[in-house]
């Protein structure tokens, strides 16, 4: 690998559409940035904003929430609730100086493997350009504090 900064993105993928889109991207051997680390949830509506904050607090440089397209939610309208929470969360994040690109929401149906892969690539590029999040410094204001980053021994 080069010295290029590689962001870590935590993905919350819904079981019915976007997780399957990611499965399809794999099955179709679509190559995309290995920076996404997916977590399966039954519905994007299960994504508690605290999940996003926990991911960012624990070293993720970005979070991607993916659900079914509006109107196609397996649970009728869980994705609409996701959207509402997402918009509120973004407002809070903005006040902390966290860039828009770091937390993204997208709709991907089970057939949209290519689309999901493209969006992961795009987000990875955007986060590479932004650099590491450094939550403790940025949000907790621990400037000058000594940060110990755990890396693989």
């Amino acid at each position: 690998m080069t010295d290029q900064f590689e962001p870590v993105i935590v993905g919350f993928l819904c079981n019915w559409c976007s997780y399957r889109a990611a499965d399809l991207a794999g099955t179709a051997r679509i190559k995309y940035a290995p920076n996404l680390r997916p977590i399966r949830v039954m519905c994007s509506g299960r994504v508690d904003p605290q999940f996003v904050l926990t991911a960012l607090l624990n070293g993720a440089d970005g979070v991607l929430i993916a659900g079914c397209h509006p109107g196609e939610c397996h649970y009728v309208n869980g994705n609409i609730k996701t959207l509402r929470r997402f918009l509120l969360l973004k407002k809070t994040l903005k006040q902390w100086g966290i860039e828009d690109e770091r937390v993204q929401l997208l709709w991907a149906s089970a057939s949209e493997g290519i689309f999901l892969a493209e969006r992961v690539n795009k987000m990875t590029e955007e986060l590479r350009a932004l650099g590491p999040l450094r939550w403790h410094e940025k949000v907790l204001g621990m400037n000058g504090a000594e940060l110990v980053t755990v890396k693989e021994a």
Partner: peptide
């Protein structure tokens, strides 16, 4: 999932 990038 974030074991390798966690900040203490």
């Amino acid at each position: 999932l974030l074991w390798d990038v966690q900040e203490l």
